[in-house]
Amino acid sequence: MSGLIPLTMREIKKWYRNPTFFIVGLLQPLFWIALFGSAFDITRTAPQYSYYILQGAPNYITFIIGGIATTTALFTGMFAGMNIIWDRRLGPLGRFLASPIRRSSIVMSKVLGATVRIIVQIFILFLAALLIPSGLILPKNFNILDVLIIAVTVLLIGIFFASLFSAIAIRITRQETIMGIVNLVNLPLMFASYALFPKNLMAPWIGNIAQYNPVSWSAIIIRTIIINGKLSQAQWNTVLNNFVYLLLTTLFVVVITIILAEKEIRN
């Protein structure tokens, strides 16, 4: 795996050196929080239902931050796949494939690079949500363990999406193809999930589908913790279940990506 570290360093360098890419990546979650979070200000428009709809969250931003964090991971994860195709088209992939490094390290470096970006973006997202007026309100007994669970969840969902889109990109040679696929899967992943709306606002059929969506799992974990702080036994079970689903699915996707990369990647 001697290629993994230098290639991941390359990804990170390329990210922070490209000011547009860097700033856009940071602005995007802020837009989500400032625009989407404020547009659906349910506590003002329907105060009598808000406690029920928002599952006890003091405002919509607090409710939705887990969903926005997950959506951010989804969008940034796409770039991992896109960058593989760029490397193929611009030439560096040829050099990597000719080197005595594991082929999976070429793909996994994209996954790690995107995951680092996702973690930084989500950190800034939380920071901004805390700072803006009527933004994120943390529960009283929010502690370091909660932060840790949220951090690991963000890490997993980041790896999940980066890995998924990388696996898709392994045999694709055209930018347009992956863009098409990304656009196709984005909407169902985002809207057939509990990321932006609670289940009880959704049509039953989509609400039922959404429970199998990894986007939902990650959003539920973060949301349950950030709304409640100290969890009841039932809430713990929800968090734990979703966490296990997310962990296993992520591991599965990573293993598939590594196998595909070793066997299928070529110039």
């Binding site: 001697s2 230098p6 290639l7 390359r10 611009l90 040829g94 050099r95």
Partner: peptide
């Protein structure tokens, strides 16, 4: 190879050091 393979977003030195690590 026939195609250019260096990464444009890195310096020449960074490209060379990266390949050395491979």
């Amino acid at each position: 190879p026939q195609d250019l393979t260096a990464d444009e977003d890195l310096t020449g030195m960074e490209n060379l050091l990266m390949v050395s690590k491979f």
